[in-house]
């Protein structure tokens, strides 16, 4: 093998290594940017002022497969979708506690709540909500049910709910619960009756 060929192979190997490092760098950069964007998104939420308001949460329990109605005090913003978001963040707050009876993935958050007309809410959760959610039919069904009935309990006009993840439609929450469909609050009410 001539020296020129060896040099050529060495150059190609260096280029291949360089490209691999560059790809790794880009991957890390995208992850960093997404994290920063998520933090900025949280920081952009308008600060809530005023006295705390009592809101109703339906909190799931994995051990007995039930949803328990509970009241907590939350400072609610004046705008309707921001209020809905604050209620869901209060629900997620219950699940993110270390002693939660229904733990969900660390870092799970609600990015936004949108309204379609007056009665349909689109809940946009962040990636951590789905990516780190415990996998299981019961665990996922409880999460979906608790989101829908909690929203409906605090904003009774909301009759239909759809859950997005990072602004995108997702097939299932963590391999089981269907996230492609709109959930009817009246239909989920059956689950709550069954579960309580």
């Amino acid at each position: 093998m001539t020296r020129r060929v060896l040099v050529m192979f060495a150059v190609l190997a260096i280029i291949a290594l360089g490209l691999a490092f560059y790809a790794l760098h880009l991957k890390r950069k995208v992850a960093r940017d997404e994290q920063v964007a998520a933090q900025q998104q949280l920081a952009l939420a308008p600060p809530a002022n005023g006295p705390p308001t009592s809101v109703t949460l339906y909190v799931a329990s994995d051990s007995d497969g039930t949803l328990r109605r509970t009241q907590v005090n939350v400072t609610l913003p004046p705008e309707r979708t921001e209020r809905d978001r604050a209620v869901l963040r209060a629900l997620f707050g219950q699940y993110l506690q270390s002693s939660s009876p229904h733990p969900i993935g660390a870092g799970a958050d609600v990015r936004d709540v949108y309204l379609l007309g007056d009665d349909t809410a689109i809940v946009d959760a962040n990636a951590a909500f789905a990516d780190a959610h415990p996998s299981g039919v019961l665990a996922e069904a409880l999460t979906v049910a608790s989101i829908v009935v909690t929203l409906n309990a605090n904003d009774t006009k909301i009759q239909r709910v759809k859950i997005l993840v990072n602004g995108q439609e997702r097939e299932t929450l963590a391999g089981h619960a269907d996230l492609r469909r709109f959930y009817e609050a009246s239909n989920i009410g059956q689950v709550v009756k069954d579960l309580q």
Binding site: V137, L138, A141, H176, A177, D178, R181, V191, D194, L195
Partner: peptide, 12 residues
């Protein structure tokens, strides 16, 4: 045991 309803694919 518990008997429940679930939004499960592909059962739908």
């Amino acid at each position: 045991n518990t008997r429940l309803l679930a939004p499960l694919r592909p059962m739908n």
